[in-house]
Design a protein around this nucleic acid. Structure first.
Length: 308
DNA sequence: CCTGCCAGAGCTCAAGCTGA
DNA sequence: TCAGCTTGAGCTCTGGCAGG
């Protein structure tokens, strides 16, 4: 009886190819690294599946039936095609020909600081690749899961434990005040720092953060007058007023845009370290183009921040 | 979703059959 | 007698399924 499609076993195709090309159970068995008895049983299954004897006894050996002769070239081509389909990718891609759009979700500050070298590095290696920097209103993992975001750069959240991550660099917050600000003349103590008025950067609009907790440990509190969504806005306000901003220290060691007219200083209270990581969905882990993208992004960022 | 159980597929070994 | 194919017995592995 001919096998139904649900009984399809692609190993039979490989065995049939070996049997038809060798014209012998022993030869096919040797070719596939099986015993002759195993190959003989496979030939029995093939006979049941095709409804044709395929190879019949002729003296001590076997000869092919007309149906077997008819199938020989077809089966050989099929096996070759199946091997091509099932062969794992080599991981080698032609970067000059790679035509793809990658969406990277990162904070405004990251884009300001790193996009220049990133664009230059990617354009020189893969001229047909296009980048889309997506805004980062929150840490929602759904766009990564849905494939809308290829790579996220930021501080790890806890909402999506399946995500793959790699640390890019570590940073700490520093204070920032306009040049000539009275706070900058003399030692910056927790008391003097807390006595100033402040501008905070918070996507969620929060007036308090880790600095307030550290000040509270000393019995101090500060007055945050303004909250803005991003660090650039906080810097702009600090440059034009007596408000003190809180920004990642790295950007100012690198002379980030917007740093003119601003002096930074170490905070007089301890604050937690900021660990900036690359985050991607496991689905993209083995994709050669995505692997190239994240290695390139991580490599360029780490090159710019060698001492992190 | 994980784990344990069970049935069936497929393998090897050994032995038998057939023909040169 | 030997080479090659087939078949019975027994083992291992895999996948489906039920239960926790």
């Amino acid at each position: 009886m001919v096998a139904a499609m649900t009984d399809l076993d692609l190993n039979l195709l490989d065995a049939l190819d070996a049997l038809l090309s060798e014209g012998s159970v022993t030869g096919a068995a040797r070719k596939l690294g099986l015993s002759a008895s195993a190959m003989s049983r496979t030939l029995t299954r093939l006979r049941n599946a095709t409804g044709d004897p395929l190879l019949v006894r002729a003296g001590r050996g076997l000869v092919p039936t007309p149906r077997a002769i008819e199938l020989r070239d077809v089966v050989h081509a099929l096996v070759r095609d199946v091997r091509t389909v099932l062969k794992p990718p080599t991981g080698e891609i032609d970067m000059a020909e790679l035509d793809r759009v990658f969406t990277i979700r990162a904070s405004e500050g990251f884009v300001e600081m790193f996009c220049g070298p990133l664009v230059a590095g990617i354009a020189s290696a893969a001229p047909r690749v296009r980048l889309r920097f997506a805004p980062k209103p929150d840490k929602n993992a759904e766009p990564l899961r849905a494939g809308q975001i290829d790579l996220e750069i930021g501080v790890l959240g806890v909402s999506a434990p399946e995500m793959r991550t790699r640390l890019i660099f570590r940073d700490r917050f520093v204070g920032a005040a306009r040049t000539g600000h009275p706070l900058l003349s003399g030692a910056i103590t927790p008391e003097r720092y807390a006595a100033c008025r402040h501008v905070a950067a918070s996507r969620r609009g929060a007036f308090t953060g880790p600095v307030d907790a550290a000040l509270a440990d000393l019995g101090l509190s500060r007055d945050t007058m303004v909250v803005v969504p991003g660090f650039s806005d906080a810097l702009r306000i600090a440059r034009q007023s007596d408000l003190i901003a809180l920004v990642p220290g790295l950007g100012f060691r690198r002379k980030a845009p917007g740093a003119e007219g601003i002096c930074t200083f170490p905070l007089p209270v301890p604050t937690p370290e900021i660990a900036v990581s690359a985050i991607w969905h496991p689905r993209m882990d083995a994709d050669p183009a995505h692997r190239w993208l994240r290695e390139t992004v991580i490599g360029i960022c780490q090159k710019m921040v060698p001492d992190s």
